[in-house]
Design a protein around this nucleic acid. Structure first.
Lengths: 157, 157
DNA sequence: GTGGGTGCAAAGTGTTTGCAAGTGT
DNA sequence: ACACTTGCAAACACTTTGCACCCAC
């Protein structure tokens, strides 16, 4: 889904590179092809593995050097999950304001958009004298299905 | 403010230790005295410095070994601000559900509680098949005052 | 041709841990 | 006494960086 959006995100990033006089090398190609062909959250190491499948010559250093460019361009967002690794979320081009529910039972991460919630956050910010720019909401929760049925539909992931 | 609450938090933690057959050493004393005498967010290194003012014998290792106990007991919460260090928030005993506004202009962190927001988050979770357990909301924002007056009341911190 | 880009390996840095000695109960 | 604790320093693990060579423009 949203394949066209992913494609346009790729083009946006290439524009971003041009605007900064940065070059589109084959390694960067492989990395951004990877980033914009998944909706999963991933770590730097996973991105390295996946990118190497497309281009063996991609190195860890280049991945680490490209990630800041991707976040700076706003097409990728860092996610701190309290784990050792930093995770990256490629879904901000489609849904810039989405939030996350993290299942304590199976570690699955579910995304959602909610306009009313967003509006309320903006109102609260205003009331406190600020203008909301970005927002990160992580809800940690348990799975209702697991409690009722003894099994979680996500458990097998 | 809420000095009594801070005091009771300290007692709660001592109970927590007893319940796990863990000892109240002088080093742990110094550390929890420090934690429960501030409302500031702090890093492990800051906690070490402050604790050493009370008890020179506190070591970095003990701080790092005590922090997980404090978070496990629910009296302290880890905060990932995307910076290099992990920050800790000692205000969860008083306000277990509070959220943060982080000012992009001065890096100041403001806390707030909002019952309606909390309720909405619970509703959303339910709708998606989950039961909300904990929640972390970070709003990144700019200071209105700075824009209007050219100065931010927090700027000098 | 030139300035940015790359891989490699070494360095950096917050955090964790093994160990021998210390201490609360 | 016994088990839990501690400080120290070494070990870890993710990330960053210096350098010499390379390549996109």
């Amino acid at each position: 889904m949203a394949v066209a959006d992913k494609e346009s995100a790729k083009l946006k990033f290439i524009d971003f590179l041009e605007g900064k006089n940065l070059r589109l090398t084959s390694q960067r190609q492989a990395i951004i092809d990877t980033v914009f062909s998944t909706e999963e959250h991933f770590t730097a190491e996973q991105l390295l593995d996946w990118s190497r499948e497309k281009d063996q010559s991609v190195s860890r250093a280049t991945v680490y050097r490209t990630l800041p460019l991707l976040t700076e361009s706003g097409l990728l967002q860092q996610m701190d999950l309290g784990k050792d690794y930093t995770y990256y979320d490629p879904n901000y081009c489609d849904h810039p304001h989405h939030s996350h529910i993290i299942c304590q039972d199976c570690d699955k991460i579910v995304e959602f958009d909610d306009e009313k919630l967003e509006k309320m956050e903006e109102e609260i910010s205003q009331k406190m004298g600020f203008s909301l720019k970005t927002q990160k909401l992580q809800i940690s929760a348990t799975c209702d299905q697991l409690k009722k049925l003894g099994a979680c539909k996500n458990k097998d992931c």
